[in-house]
Amino acid sequence: KKTINSIYGTRVAVLAGDFLFAQSSWFLANLDNLEVIKLISQVIADFANGEISQASSLFDTDVTLEQYSDKSFYKTASLIAASCRSAAVFSGVSSDMKEAMYAYGKHLGLAFQIVDDILDFTQSAEQLGKPQGQDLASGNLTAPIIYALRNPLVKEELLDILSSEFVEEGSLERALHLVQLGGGLDAARALAQQEGETALAALACLSESPAKRSLQQMVEYVLHRIY
């Protein structure tokens, strides 16, 4: 589908974004709940933090798994975590249950981001709706490549390719192959599974119900995408 930017240009696209942001702020203010307003306001700050973090670490082969996890939280998991906690706030539950729902949303969001990053390596352009390996080509080093760089069998060649920023023809395809060869995809899948299991464990505070089952199925759906 064509984007607003491609149809109307950058100026109109930015103004449309400003309008939507203003509308969301208006609806947020009308919730009349200070705790939720603070939660969602923090999400907006987290979004910016995540984008700045990503932009400042392109092609940085020293990026750690912890830094990747922090960036993934800011960009994706923060919103899901805050939304889950907000629902708990409006339900009037205990502080412990609010924390549990926040943890569920956080780890669901992290699992989602890890899976999304895996798919950048494994799915076709038709499935992704964008070229395969586009995130890697832009220098965004995610869990699969961070893990692959730990493998001495592929580390040096991967570092050479990344340092050249894919200037040589076929280097991106070679890097995608090396990540798989170096076990990066399997390790990232295991990490996503771990985050999903942590999210499910956070639901232990809820009694059995169709609503709880729906939350469990959300985790199952996210993890199913990588197989």
Rank of each mutant, 00 (worst) to 15 (best):
N33Y: 03
K130V: 01
Q217F: 04
I4E: 03
L65S: 01
N140H: 08
S171K: 06
T142H: 04
P210W: 07
A55S: 14
R150W: 08
M101F: 11
R11V: 11
I114H: 01
L58P: 12
D62L: 07
K155H: 09
P210C: 07
I114A: 03
C84E: 07
N5M: 15
Q134S: 15
P210R: 09
P131T: 09
T76Y: 09
Y74V: 07
H177D: 13
Y68T: 03
S163I: 03
H224K: 13
K98W: 10
G17M: 10
Q216R: 05
L39N: 11
G183D: 09
P144I: 05
A55G: 12
F121Y: 14
I226V: 14
A87R: 14
I114Y: 02
S164D: 14
D62S: 15
A188D: 06
S171D: 04
G182P: 00
Q132D: 02
L153R: 12
F121W: 11
S56E: 15
A143C: 04
L149S: 12
G139D: 00
L176M: 02
A211Y: 15
E208P: 03
T10N: 14
Y74Q: 03
D62G: 12
D70T: 06
M97K: 15
P131H: 03
L110C: 11
R150P: 08
G182Y: 08
K155N: 14
S41K: 13
S24D: 02
Q123C: 10
S95K: 13
A82M: 07
R225W: 07
L203I: 10
Y68R: 05
K1M: 15
G196H: 09
L34F: 10
E126V: 10
A82S: 12
T64G: 11
E195D: 00
S164I: 10
D117I: 02
L153K: 13
E173C: 01
F121A: 03
P144F: 09
K106D: 05
M101K: 02
E99A: 10
L181M: 12
Y104N: 10
P210D: 06
D96G: 13
A211Q: 15
Y68I: 04
P210A: 09
L223E: 09
G109P: 08
S138C: 03
D96T: 10
E66H: 07
E99T: 09
F112I: 01
F59N: 02
E168T: 12
M218L: 11
D60W: 03
D46F: 08
T198H: 04
L108H: 03
F112W: 10
D135W: 04
Q132A: 09
A48H: 11
G196R: 07
R11S: 12
I114G: 01
I114C: 04
F166K: 08
I146H: 01
I40D: 07
K2E: 15
S6M: 02
A103F: 06
A88S: 12
S6Y: 02
K75C: 11
H224L: 10
F121R: 03
G50C: 00
I161P: 04
A22N: 09
A77S: 00
L181D: 07
A48D: 06
E220C: 08
A45F: 15
N49R: 14
E168N: 12
A88K: 00
S86H: 05
L110W: 08
I44F: 11
K98Q: 15
G139T: 02
A192Y: 05
K71T: 11
L178G: 08
Y74N: 07
M218N: 03
L28I: 01
